[in-house]
Design a binder for these strands. Sequence first.
DNA 1: GTGGTCTAGACCACG
DNA 2: GTGGTCTAGACCACC
Lengths: 125, 125, 125, 125
Amino acid sequence: MFIEIEPSSEIPIYTQLVNQLIELIAKGELQPNDTLPSVRSLAADLGVNMHTVNKAYHELERKRIIRIIPKSGAVVSEITTPTDEQLATITHALKTVLAESTVYGMNKDEVLSIALTIMSDYKEG
Amino acid sequence: MFIEIEPSSEIPIYTQLVNQLIELIAKGELQPNDTLPSVRSLAADLGVNMHTVNKAYHELERKRIIRIIPKSGAVVSEITTPTDEQLATITHALKTVLAESTVYGMNKDEVLSIALTIMSDYKEG
Amino acid sequence: MFIEIEPSSEIPIYTQLVNQLIELIAKGELQPNDTLPSVRSLAADLGVNMHTVNKAYHELERKRIIRIIPKSGAVVSEITTPTDEQLATITHALKTVLAESTVYGMNKDEVLSIALTIMSDYKEG
Amino acid sequence: MFIEIEPSSEIPIYTQLVNQLIELIAKGELQPNDTLPSVRSLAADLGVNMHTVNKAYHELERKRIIRIIPKSGAVVSEITTPTDEQLATITHALKTVLAESTVYGMNKDEVLSIALTIMSDYKEG
DNA sequence: GTGGTCTAGACCACG
DNA sequence: GTGGTCTAGACCACC
């Protein structure tokens, strides 16, 4: 399970963690019902504070991507169908990135091609 | 030129401004060589601090989307071809949002369909 | 005797146990002088740790709801009249939940109606 | 605005804070759109850590009782109609406390009378 | 000045 | 051993 943290990035460490854990799940390297490392051990591995990992885990729980079982650990949730809130989140994020790509002069096929390449690493046909 | 600021959002106001101005350019409501409103007038319109608008403009300049001409104003740049840095930015952002959509259980066609709908509002065929 | 444990709940398992056993007594499914299952058998039934059940039983004893007879078992106490401490506990708990219901915009009749429905499942006229 | 913290209580300080702030809102001492004290000033007033107050505020936001406006402050939300989740929360909490009151030998009228007394301090007829 | 983030280190409740 | 809670103190982004 490779996670790379960029401490000097403008993106908060806990957000980097959230994003990379989501990618690991999307790639299938973390499967539903898999147990995540304990906050302490992951913090030690990455050289960050326990609370930072803890915050990332709680953010993933808020997004309903993992479930935290107190005193026991955190497990990856089953993937079901997106909630309205999740759909809205994705749509909003896509709007922002697609607008930026347009302004950068990328044409639609180019963007779709990049998207397809990325998604080919992710789960499901 | 409709810009809507959500003060209670977790996203900083200046970032909201950046994103919405990019969308306006993507939609063609702001064209290359158009002049943006002055920092003062836009701040007054939106009821936000002048420094906040100023920061947004400088962020857009850093992204090479507008040019700030001191004492004169800010104008929308020509759209050319993306720099490597811009490509990397878009690719990275797409990775994050597409991973999240996968984890939410959205299938690829569904995501692409949303992307196409969004892009149909944006410039270029 | 149906007891349902939610391991991923934020509420400690032993507290869930305490609450559900109290509900069973309130509903009359456990009567005064009935014997509770042994710590070992209940733990096995629920798939939880023996210490967890033990802690729940001792919490119920502290509340004077059951009596633990060493080497013999635990029996449901007679229901008498509330002690001052018990009255204070209930009053404090009611304050908290009724304040929350008010803040959520529920009106008093609505709350009382829910309370009556719940109490209709419980013992005594 | 009187808030009393019991540091030695078994109830976490941040939970005590949450409950007391909810009571203040229910009593109308804090009105919708009122601004809460800053996390730092309230922490100083109560002699607790800033992060503890911060956690309480975020818990209230999760319950949709206040809105946190980053870098600006926290304001009490408008009271509308309860969501399904809020209704379920209240119902579940009522079940627990009413079962306990039954087991303590309190009869229904007695409990309702206490509830009415409490609610007479709270907003709305 | 405000909340956001991060660190370091501690004790406790739980299982 | 695990997460939960709390403290203390620091720097930063935002407004």
